[in-house]
Amino acid sequence: MTFTLATWNINSVRLREGLVAQLMTDEAPDVLCLQECKSPLDKIPVATFQALGYTHMIGRGQKGYNGVAIFSKMPIEEVGAADYAGLGHARHIAGRLSNGVTVHNFYVPAGGDKPDREINDKFGQKLDYLTDMRDAFHAARPEKAILVGDLNIAPREDDVWDHKKLLKIVSHTPIEVEHLAQVQDSGAWVDVTRQDIPQGNLYSWWSYRAADWDTADKGRRLDHIWATSDIASAAHSSRVLRHVRGWEQPSDHAPVFATFDL
């Protein structure tokens, strides 16, 4: 079967209910993974999304912060929700689709402003979170799985608008990139987006601080779709929906898509 999956940091699912509904209507992915929902699960406008065909949902909610959810047209069974680094945050949910594929949806901590865990606890929490992800996937090697989400790291030089200027900026520092690479290696994950789009600048996030984000184009690729090596070759048609960043009252992230033939 063929199915399309999308990931999107929505930056408040209740505030941007209409944008989620628009994406579901315009693009109709079979599975939509949201991060930073900023809502308890019982406050998410599920009825709106069910009316558009997304009759299945799993997630973890948190009032005002974090939060992850998976909306699916196919049946999905929850199979895990890990509290990496013991933060008590709603940052991970995993579900198994009716086709046997397990989907991990992550919202990795942003890490604060200073890339130094000695003076910035949030940066230390981010590194610890990634370390726990690495150890978990090393202990239980995933198969037939997809990992998506706002991983809050742009790993490649062409995943940021200026590699040299951002080397000391949280999200692109060498230590973060190395930690993310260890997570990827531990699960034999393949970066599906870059498998499909191997060359060229590619971004999924543009700061609200830019007066004209599109013209300035100071973006970063923080949002990712990975697949285990046993199914990565079935992925295709990867794309970032850049124009969604220009919708009215948008999230600062754009949705990322991939299609799988399984």
Rank of each mutant, 00 (worst) to 15 (best):
172 H>I: 03
23 L>H: 10
90 A>R: 04
216 A>I: 13
170 V>C: 07
190 V>Y: 00
216 A>S: 15
26 D>G: 00
28 A>V: 11
84 Y>P: 00
237 S>P: 09
65 Y>E: 01
5 L>W: 04
112 G>M: 06
254 A>G: 00
169 I>N: 08
102 T>V: 15
132 D>H: 09
243 H>D: 14
251 S>Q: 08
126 K>T: 08
19 L>K: 04
88 G>H: 05
135 D>S: 01
14 R>N: 14
59 G>S: 09
158 D>N: 11
22 Q>S: 11
34 L>C: 02
68 V>P: 08
225 I>H: 06
219 G>N: 03
115 P>Y: 10
217 D>T: 10
141 R>Y: 15
186 S>F: 02
115 P>T: 04
186 S>W: 08
209 R>E: 07
164 K>E: 15
218 K>Y: 11
2 T>V: 10
34 L>V: 03
166 L>V: 03
225 I>V: 13
158 D>A: 01
54 Y>N: 06
236 H>G: 06
192 V>S: 03
162 D>E: 01
44 I>L: 14
147 L>A: 15
179 H>R: 13
150 D>R: 13
109 P>C: 01
192 V>G: 04
59 G>A: 02
70 I>F: 05
91 R>F: 02
58 I>R: 12
168 K>Q: 13
135 D>W: 08
70 I>M: 14
260 F>C: 05
155 P>C: 01
51 A>H: 12
224 H>I: 03
133 M>W: 12
27 E>F: 13
1 M>Q: 14
208 Y>M: 11
245 R>G: 00
169 I>S: 14
10 I>C: 09
66 N>I: 09
248 E>A: 13
131 T>F: 04
142 P>D: 03
110 A>T: 12
127 L>E: 03
176 E>G: 02
133 M>K: 11
174 P>T: 02
185 D>F: 00
238 S>M: 14
88 G>E: 10
244 V>Q: 01
29 P>W: 02
40 P>A: 07
68 V>L: 05
86 G>F: 08
90 A>V: 03
105 N>Q: 06
259 T>E: 14
62 Q>D: 07
246 G>A: 13
91 R>H: 01
165 K>N: 07
228 T>I: 11
195 Q>T: 02
25 T>F: 04
232 A>N: 12
28 A>K: 15
178 E>M: 07
213 W>H: 13
201 N>M: 14
50 Q>R: 15
41 L>G: 09
90 A>W: 02
57 M>S: 13
176 E>V: 07
73 K>C: 07
194 R>T: 06
139 A>I: 01
113 D>L: 14
219 G>M: 03
238 S>P: 10
114 K>C: 07
97 L>H: 12
162 D>R: 04
119 I>L: 13
20 V>F: 09
134 R>P: 04
134 R>C: 09
230 D>E: 10
202 L>H: 11
244 V>R: 06
172 H>A: 05
223 D>M: 06
